[in-house]
Design a protein around this nucleic acid. Structure first.
Length: 801
DNA sequence: AGCACGCCGACT
DNA sequence: GTCGGCGTGCTC
């Protein structure tokens, strides 16, 4: 007998293992990776086939057959099923969560419990008759609890039945097409038509142009200028055949300009050859391409991909979400045309689903996408690229908490293909691995377009204060902005706002407006004139007086982009500014619209936050101003310096990318800090050396691996109790090569009325760590959870907030 | 997760 | 005596 091992779509500890199901002789084709509908308990659920076998230990009386196969082509490949198992183990999550993370959201199933009357309306009791009046099928959950009870009782007698309806979130899009008959038949029809049927004649005349062809009904309606009923008449009369045809949603109809292959510089050539050799040798080697901004990493990617395609293999290119601008995708589509699929958050569920299907069917060979594109169901991968590999967006913040870089390397090993990590400012972890020879380091230190690196100057804002300038703009920056305006060049102003939201403070008594549910200040949103909590979404009005001392000197502190714009216009009233922040880019496509408007020269200044740090490459930008470079330095986070360095280096790279000389002005209150000084000189390696010393001294990655355990509970005593118990358990289960830090209150010690504590594990060799963590999770799932404790385990957290 | 089973207190 | 509270345990 054939047996399928199935992981069911129930995200719980108790069912986090395969269940066996019988595959009858007449069962449709089932493979590893197939989605199947199976009876589970008294209901039906979707499951994923993760194994096939001939025998089972399950009691034959219990063994049930699968109900049906959901997709003809298995949703997942065998490789991805294996990867899900690996991810579940390494990120401490359920296998079902890992499996689902690999599929587009459109394929998630929603369940609806249905009650179906199985006897005629007259045979039902009067109360039941009311329920089923409109239809013999009713949604169970929309009934009142009294009605639900009635149905349960009726089910015992057999008058009604329970069923589960399953629906995929987004359907495959189809369009109606018409099959035009032969010319002879059309002429025959012409004779049959009444003289008065003008519209029908008009339609026939149109169809005469396309004998034996298949036409899209909508197009026919428009071009022949006939209405739906006319076509319906033709269909009913049997003049034309009508059917539905699957179509892909059109993503970007605009014409992609052909992107010409560039000649490589010596440095680029050397990097390219190293990667090409690994591609040709089918070698799972990880390269770290360290190339300064503007050194032409993309061209190396493109030519390596070209090589992969020549070999009949496929490539995945990951790009940080924010950098997935049309500029970037245009380059890939321009070079490889129809072979490219694009995946990012600006696409609708349906569009992502369509792109995914193109990949699954092998209709494309290159995917350019954000984090989740790492799960592209290719079967013959030849290369995986992570551009800007240091970006924290490659780490998924919720379950399954995977890092795309780790997944890439796993897939590279599976497919025997190289992985190429590219960055101007590699993550410390990556560079350290390259130093140790785990990754192969490739360096590019020149800009091919001969454009010089921009001149960077650092302005000490403390000095400005001393000379009486209290504004956000230094004299030097204002002066430089004026110069560019005269020359008709463009300016980018970057506001480093991490950890620097605007909050309200009473100048008399020092009271700040805090969230009543979280241990954090409320943020002022000018657009809606309200205060909001960024952790729990609590919202309130702006108080007219200080709630503590009733003074009227409540003021906003901190610097938002709106304030920056207002202040700039105070100094230079005739300046035109495009502002990019969460407020102006929340609508779909707004991001791209603003960028292209700036590209067309519709404004002199582009002012924004993180989101403008990359992806824009306009030749006319000759000045970049950083308004508060150090604000990200003050975060209590071991990556603060690294983030600041990366940000400043990226931003500086925006200036003068073509023939014009660029200038960067960095305003800061901490001009002597090494991450600012070294970013100024674009000195990655010295920065790496200093920062590594720091990490070593404080025992942070990459000197140690870390795991963060976060506990929360509505009661402070409870959370402390369990945090202590957790730490005790870890200390006893792990040997002394592990350092257990804490427990201690989290940096934000209360969120949503729950107190938060955390424990850190630092280690160099994992030994039995994963067993111990799974044990802890078991304890939590079976005992602690009942006490309403919440515990999350984060492998290699990006920050310790 | 959902759902049934089962064992004790409040009603017809 | 039955209804229904939610503790416990199972789902191939």
């Amino acid at each position: 007998m054939k047996i399928a091992q199935v992981i069911v779509d129930v995200s719980t500890y108790a069912v986090n293992r395969p269940f066996d199901y019988a595959l009858n002789e007449d069962a449709p084709y089932v493979e590893i990776g197939s989605r199947v509908k199976v009876p589970f308990g008294r209901r039906d659920v979707i499951g994923y086939v993760v194994g096939l076998k001939e025998e089972t230990d399950v009691d034959p009386a219990k063994l049930k057959p699968i109900s049906e196969v959901v997709d003809y082509r298995p949703a997942l490949t065998e490789e991805l099923v294996e990867l899900a198992q690996h991810l579940a183990h390494r990120t401490i999550c359920y296998e079902i969560d890992a499996l689902q993370a690999m599929l587009p959201a459109a394929m998630r199933t929603s369940y609806e419990r249905l009650v179906v009357a199985t006897v005629s309306l007259e045979q039902l009791s009067p109360a039941l008759r009311d329920i089923f009046e409109s239809s013999p099928t009713q949604s169970f959950d929309s009934l009142t609890s009294a009605q639900q009870k009635l149905c349960k009782d009726a089910a015992l007698v057999g008058d009604v039945e329970f069923r589960t309806a399953m629906k995929q979130q987004t359907a495959i899009k189809t369009e109606r097409v018409l099959h035009v008959p032969s010319l002879e038949r059309l002429q025959q029809i012409e004779g049959e038509l009444s003289n008065r049927a003008h519209k029908q004649k008009q339609l026939l005349a149109y169809l005469m142009n396309y004998p034996n062809e298949v036409l899209v009904e909508k197009v026919v309606r428009e071009e022949a200028d006939v209405a739906g009923p006319t076509i319906q008449t033709f269909v009913t009369a049997g003049y034309v055949e009508r059917s539905e045809r699957e179509v892909y949603r059109e993503i970007d109809a605009s014409q992609m300009a052909y992107d010409e292959k560039l000649a490589l510089t010596t440095e680029q050539q050397r990097a390219f050859e190293a990667v090409r050799d690994a591609i040709d040798a089918s070698r799972a080697e990880t390269f770290l391409l360290h190339g300064i901004t503007g050194s032409g990493k993309t061209e190396v990617y493109l030519q390596a991909i070209e090589r992969v395609l020549e070999r009949g293999e496929q490539a995945v290119v990951l790009v940080p979400e924010i950098a997935l601008t049309p500029q970037m995708t245009a380059r890939f589509k321009g070079r490889f045309g129809e072979q490219v699929a694009v995946m990012h958050s600006a696409l609708s569920q349906g569009e992502k689903y369509d792109e995914w299907r193109k990949i699954r069917r092998g209709e494309v060979s290159v995917v350019v996408g954000a984090r989740s594109a790492i799960f592209a169901p290719f079967t013959n991968l030849g290369l995986i690229i992570l551009d800007e590999e240091h970006e924290s967006t490659y780490k998924q913040e919720d379950v399954p908490r995977y890092h795309a870089r780790d997944v890439a390397i796993w897939r590279g090993n599976y497919h025997h293909c190289p992985v190429l990590l590219g960055s101007a400012t590699p993550a410390l972890e990556s560079f350290a691995r390259a130093q140790k020879g785990v990754y192969t380091l490739l360096s590019m230190t020149e800009r091919p377009k001969q454009s010089a690196l921009p001149e960077v100057s650092v302005v000490d804002m403390r000095e400005e204060l001393r000379t009486g300038n209290r504004s956000m703009y230094s004299h030097a920056l204002i002066q430089a902005i004026r110069e560019r305006m005269e020359r008709g060049e463009q300016i980018v102003l970057f506001l480093n706002r991490r950890g620097f939201a605007s909050f309200m403070l009473c100048r008399d008594c020092g009271t700040t407006m805090q969230c009543p549910h979280c241990d954090i200040s409320l943020t002022y949103h000018r657009s809606v004139e309200r205060l909001k909590c960024h952790y729990c979404n609590y919202e309130t009005y702006v108080p007219p007086k200080c709630p503590h001392c009733e003074s009227e000197s409540m003021r906003f502190f901190g610097t938002g982009t709106q304030k920056a714009e207002v202040e700039l216009k105070k100094v230079i009233p005739d300046i035109s500014v495009i502002r990019m922040d969460v407020d102006t880019t929340s609508r779909k496509g707004a991001h791209e619209k603003l960028l292209s408007a700036f590209g067309r020269g519709e404004a002199q200044v582009l002012l924004g936050t993180q989101m403008i740090a990359k992806g824009l490459d306009f030749p006319n930008i000759t000045l970049v101003g950083v308004l508060a470079a150090d604000s990200s330095l003050h975060l209590a986070d071991f990556r603060a310096s690294e983030r600041t360095f990366q940000l400043l280096t990226q931003v500086s790279g925006r200036a003068g990318r073509a023939h014009l000389q660029g200038e960067v002005i960095v305003q800061t209150y901490a001009p002597e800090h090494y991450s600012i000084q070294l970013a100024k000189q674009q000195q990655y390696i010295p920065f790496y050396n200093v920062e590594m010393q720091m990490r070593k001294r404080f025992g942070y990655p990459p000197m140690f691996y870390i795991v963060a355990l976060q506990l929360s509970h509505a009661s402070l005593e409870k959370v402390i109790h369990y945090a202590n118990q957790t730490a005790r358990f870890l200390r006893q289960a792990l040997d002394d090569t592990f350092i257990i830090v804490g427990p201690a209150p989290s940096l934000i010690s209360r969120v949503n009325d729950r107190y938060r504590y955390q424990c850190l594990i630092k280690y160099k060799a994992e030994n039995n760590l994963f067993d111990v963590l799974h044990q802890l999770m078991h304890m939590y799932r079976t005992k602690w959870m009942k006490e309403h404790l919440r515990l999350s385990i984060q492998m290699e957290p990006q920050s310790l907030m």
